[in-house]
């Protein structure tokens, strides 16, 4: 008998909702950033690239702390959201989404940037001599050629968001059905000595993560063969 109760199921549902929404937003935000990073000769390429990569090395609590401050009533994001009549973001699902977008950004931008760089200049020039405008070229040549990069980016962005803990605690606290995701729920179960439930959730996460990586690495191997 699976000992998961409705709170556990709500945590799983919330986690999937958060990861899906974050991934969609990240693909929308990350694509132009990655395209710019892949193509620019600007002196800002280095600094912007470093900022995007920061979540790779920062402890999640540091990122969470600054986001908490920024989203608070006196922070610049907080001022903005209050000005728009949205209240403040900490301890809400929306706040969690915003924080996750920052937290998982490099996992989406870097595969996309690599994919764009691998395409090189030539296909773009060919498209131009075949009368395709730059925007047309982006949609009809760049996107299809970068498809494997988008798949990798989406999987990594999704999986990394599912696996976050520190940032969630800092920004979202631990509110059932609003901000309590699976990783936090596991922590709660362990605190309460409910090891059976913790096992089920933790085991689920383990299997999920393994499957994601398996799909990713097998598809890379296949591409390697064909190329």
């Amino acid at each position: 008998m699976v000992p998961l109760d409705s709170v556990d199921l709500a945590a799983i549902w919330l986690t999937l909702k958060l990861a899906t929404l974050t991934t969609v937003l990240l693909l929308l935000i990350g694509t132009p950033i990655a395209w710019w990073l892949a193509r620019t000769r600007s002196k800002w390429k280095g600094p912007i690239g470093a900022v995007v990569a920061l979540p790779l090395v920062l402890p999640p609590t540091v990122l969470g702390f600054y986001l908490l401050v920024a989203m608070g009533p006196h922070g610049f994001i907080g001022q903005l959201t209050q000005g728009l009549g949205l209240g403040t973001l900490p301890f809400t699902f929306a706040g969690l989404v915003v924080a996750s977008v920052f937290y998982s950004l490099p996992f989406v931008v870097q595969p996309l940037q690599n994919a764009f760089e691998a395409i090189g200049e030539r296909p773009l020039e060919v498209a131009a001599t075949l009368r395709a405008s730059p925007a047309d070229t982006f949609f009809s040549v760049v996107l299809p050629l970068a498809k494997p990069g988008f798949v990798t980016a989406a999987i990594l962005g999704f999986a990394h968001t599912v696996g976050e803990f520190g940032v969630v605690l800092m920004i979202g606290g631990n509110i059932p059905e609003k901000t309590r995701v699976v990783s936090v729920q596991i922590y709660d179960h362990v605190e309460a000595m409910a090891y059976a439930q913790a096992h089920w959730l933790a085991g689920g996460m383990l299997v999920f993560s393994f499957l994601v990586l398996l799909v990713l690495y097998s598809s890379r191997l296949k591409q390697g063969w064909r190329g």
């Binding site: 030539r122 296909p123 060919v126």
Partner: peptide, 17 residues
């Protein structure tokens, strides 16, 4: 810009999509 010029360009490598 190149995409508004009525020309055809054949590159050294065919560069097919």
């Amino acid at each position: 810009p190149p995409h508004q010029r009525a020309l055809g360009y054949v590159f050294q490598e065919a560069s097919l999509f």
